[in-house]
Amino acid sequence: MADQDMDTDEKASTAALSAAGLSILYSLYLFYVRGERSKGIFVGLWAPTILTIASYVEETNLTEKAQSELDA
């Protein structure tokens, strides 16, 4: 069961990192290739937001797991 949870957590982390990386690449494309500087900066701010949300969700899951182990 723990291995299954780890796989799910790893997949979620990988998805968050991929989404953040893609937003950075897209922001660079908008900024340099398309010349849309404002849009490039805006999209570039998605990466830290995505990573912050992923971190919060992971921390919440860890807190819930620790609490359930203390209760057991």
Rank of each mutant, 00 (worst) to 15 (best):
I24L: 04
M6T: 12
L62P: 05
A47G: 03
V33E: 13
T14Q: 07
V33K: 10
G44E: 01
Y26V: 15
E10T: 15
L28H: 10
A2P: 11
T8Q: 13
T52I: 04
R34M: 04
K11H: 08
F42V: 05
A16N: 00
N61D: 06
L28F: 13
Q4N: 13
L45Q: 05
L28C: 14
E58K: 15
T52P: 00
F42R: 09
G44A: 00
A19Y: 03
Q4R: 14
D9S: 14
L62W: 09
S38Q: 15
E59P: 07
A19D: 02
L30K: 07
L70S: 10
I41M: 04
K39E: 09
Q67F: 11
R34F: 02
Y26C: 15
S23H: 10
A66E: 12
E10L: 15
Y56L: 11
D71L: 14
D9V: 13
Y26F: 15
R37C: 09
D71C: 08
D71F: 09
L45S: 07
Y56A: 06
L17T: 00
T49I: 12
R37D: 10
E36Q: 01
I50N: 01
Y29Q: 09
S55K: 02
P48I: 02
K65C: 06
G40Y: 03
A47E: 01
N61W: 02
A19G: 05
R37F: 14
G40D: 07
A15R: 06
A12I: 14
I41D: 02
K39D: 07
S38T: 15
L22D: 04
T8K: 12
L25R: 15
I53W: 00
T49G: 06
E69W: 15
G44M: 01
V57P: 00
T60S: 09
Y56K: 06
T14H: 07
S27R: 02
D3M: 14
Q4S: 13
V43I: 13
K39H: 07
A15I: 01
D9R: 13
E59K: 10
L17S: 02
F42M: 05
T8F: 06
V43Y: 03
T8E: 09
G35V: 00
S68V: 06
T14M: 07
L17Q: 03
K11E: 06
D5Y: 14
E10V: 14
R34L: 03
T49W: 01
G44Q: 00
A66I: 11
T60I: 11
G40I: 06
T14Y: 06
M1L: 12
L30E: 08
Y29G: 10
F42N: 04
A54P: 01
T49F: 09
G35M: 00
I41W: 03
A54D: 03
D3S: 13
T52G: 04
W46H: 11
A12T: 13
I50Q: 01
S27G: 08
L62H: 08
A47M: 02
D7K: 05
S23C: 08
P48E: 04
L51M: 11
L30Y: 08
E64F: 09
A12P: 12
G44T: 01
A12R: 14
S55V: 05
T14A: 12
T63H: 08
E10F: 10
W46T: 12
L45K: 07
M1Y: 11
L17M: 07
L51R: 05
T14N: 08
